[in-house]
Design a protein around this nucleic acid. Structure first.
Length: 479
RNA sequence: GGGGUCGUCGUCUAGCUUGGUCUAGGAUACCAGCCUGGGGCGCUGGCGGUCCUGGGUUCAAAUCCCAGCGACCCCA
């Protein structure tokens, strides 16, 4: 647990909405339901978060592209289970000027059907495969449920979607594995803990063979899906007739995967590390990694400010993202709160005492612990402290999550845990769809799916029907 | 999908039940000045609201009624 208390933590929803505005991350008061404005500071966090993802994808052979926002109805409708799920959820462009369009256009709810017609043109032979594309774009969904800032928007302003094409089913399976590793690396980089589950048949992506999802747990015990990986099989390639010529000269339909991560990843990192003082940002994604606050006693102000400026230059040279807060109309105490709220990992205080000793006072945001160090060793100390902080944030966050994943062997305990908002519950399951759905009904929670991140021998009986269990299944109240 | 609660300066809110004294009060933020300065000092002055929008009832509406828009909560 954090050294900094989370006394208001049960009212997580309220906390989250407050920090979005107060910390200058997202303003959701835009006059259209489910739309929000990324504010400058939040935009920087968002950019850092998605840059990590971008780097991971680039380094694993993915190429970034940009497809049009609009998808013609004729394309969206080609894969039947896909359109069935999305047509009610789309925003439709029906007019150009005052002319009624003969074929209406959807604002992309996701881009499989935008990409498919182009793949048909691009993929000619086995030599073109694998083809691994991605884009970071906005998507639109006409949500009928209550919208929530970042968590459920009608315009998802940040959506990284990767779309890959392969020659064989096996290659696609390998790609799913790679995608899972990429996502693990991504969340690990931000110290966000997760569980990986194979979604049940009835909750997979429309048009997929199967779906794998990353879930985290929010402070209120609900889970938040933060990433998904889908094996699409040949569903789309057959619907769009995307074929390639094999080495033997035969035409075969391609095998596809897709996987996505949205702005929820930003919500996740804010949620996991935040506390009563506001946001706590891991140094890797913090727009400002260290803030220097002068404690300018009268008649020493000049001397102190100069020392601060020297330190600023020193840190900049060492590639530390640093901010010197020289605002004269604000007392140091106010500045502490100001930067704590915004999650700046490290604070450097320079006052008369420090100057006398040729020292700096350093405070880490996660624990608010103070220490002093010689100015000559400041860069090294700060870099080390940031590493320590990341390690500690990770340990704390994973410990918190691990404590909220429960294994029980009977329905009563499962129900109690869910009712008490204790997070994820794992029970044994026979593998039958009917039992799975009944489980959701009886417990009053959603099935997340079968664990993909633990290897375990199954020994026991299904909590619903009592037959021999085939799998562990995870259940939780999901956002 | 079903049910409920709510909408007042940028933000949080008082007022609404019982319409009139509301020319809508406070706090915070913001601006100017003084004073300070190691966890939100203090003081003075200032800025800021067609009481979500539209309609209705009434001599009179922030307050009552209807619709729309928006927000939140609960259940499925």
């Amino acid at each position: 647990m954090a050294a900094v208390k989370r006394k208001d933590w049960s009212r997580y929803g309220k906390w989250f909405r407050r920090i979005l505005i107060d910390a200058g991350i997202l303003d959701y008061r835009y006059p259209i339901k489910g739309c929000g404005v990324w504010l400058p500071y939040g935009f920087k966090i968002r950019r850092n978060v998605f840059q990590i993802l971008r780097n991971l994808l680039d380094s694993t052979g993915h190429d970034e592209t940009l497809f049009p926002l609009m998808i013609p109805e004729t394309a969206l409708a080609k894969e039947s289970s896909h359109v069935g799920s999305f047509e009610e959820e789309c925003y439709w462009v029906t007019h150009g000027g005052t002319d009624l369009l003969k074929i209406k256009y959807a604002l992309r709810p996701t881009s499989e059907t935008a990409i498919a017609p182009m793949l048909k043109l691009w993929v000619r032979s086995h030599a073109d495969l694998p083809l691994k594309l991605y884009q970071i774009v906005n998507i639109f969904r006409y949500e009928t449920k209550a919208t929530r800032p970042i968590l459920r928007m009608r315009e998802v302003s940040t959506f990284k979607e990767a779309h890959t094409s392969h020659a064989t089913f096996e290659d696609a399976e390998e790609q799913v594995k790679e995608a899972i590793i990429v996502y693990k690396d991504f969340f690990d980089a931000m110290d966000v803990p997760y569980r990986i589950s194979k979604r049940p048949e009835w909750d997979k992506f429309p048009g997929a063979l199967y779906s794998v999802a990353f879930d985290m747990i929010c402070p209120d015990g609900r889970t938040l899906q933060v990433g998904t990986v889908h094996n699409l099989g040949q569903n789309f390639s057959k619907a769009f007739d995307i074929t390639y010529e094999t080495e033997k000269g035969e035409q075969e339909h391609i095998w596809q995967t897709c996987y996505g991560i949205s702005g929820r990843a930003v919500a996740a990192v804010l949620t996991v590390h935040g506390d009563d003082y506001g946001v706590v940002l891991p140094p890797k994604i913090a727009p400002i990694q260290a803030v220097i606050i002068p404690i300018p006693y009268k008649n020493k102000a000049e001397q102190i400010n100069k020392a601060c400026k020297d330190i600023e230059i020193m840190l900049k040279k060492a590639n530390v993202q640093v901010k010197l807060d020289l605002r004269a109309d604000m007392r140091p105490g106010s500045k502490f709160y100001y930067w704590d709220l915004r999650g700046v990992p490290i604070r450097i205080e320079i006052g008369p005492k420090d100057i006398e000793q040729n020292e700096a006072t350093i405070v880490r945001r996660d624990t608010l612990e103070k220490q002093t160090c010689k100015i000559s060793g400041l860069v090294k100390t700060i870099q080390e402290l940031m590493r320590t902080m990341m390690k500690d944030l990770r340990l704390r966050a994973w410990k918190w999550m691990d404590e909220r994943v429960h294994r029980v062997d009977n329905l009563e305990d499962a129900k109690k845990l869910i009712a008490r908002k204790e997070g994820i519950v794992e029970v044994l399951w026979c593998g039958n769809v009917k039992c799975g759905q009944k489980l959701e009904e009886v417990i009053g929670a959603r099935v997340l799916g079968v664990p993909m991140d633990i290897e375990e021998k199954i020994d026991g009986n299904c909590v619903i029907c009592g037959k021999t269990a085939a799998d562990i299944i995870r259940v939780a109240i999901a956002y």
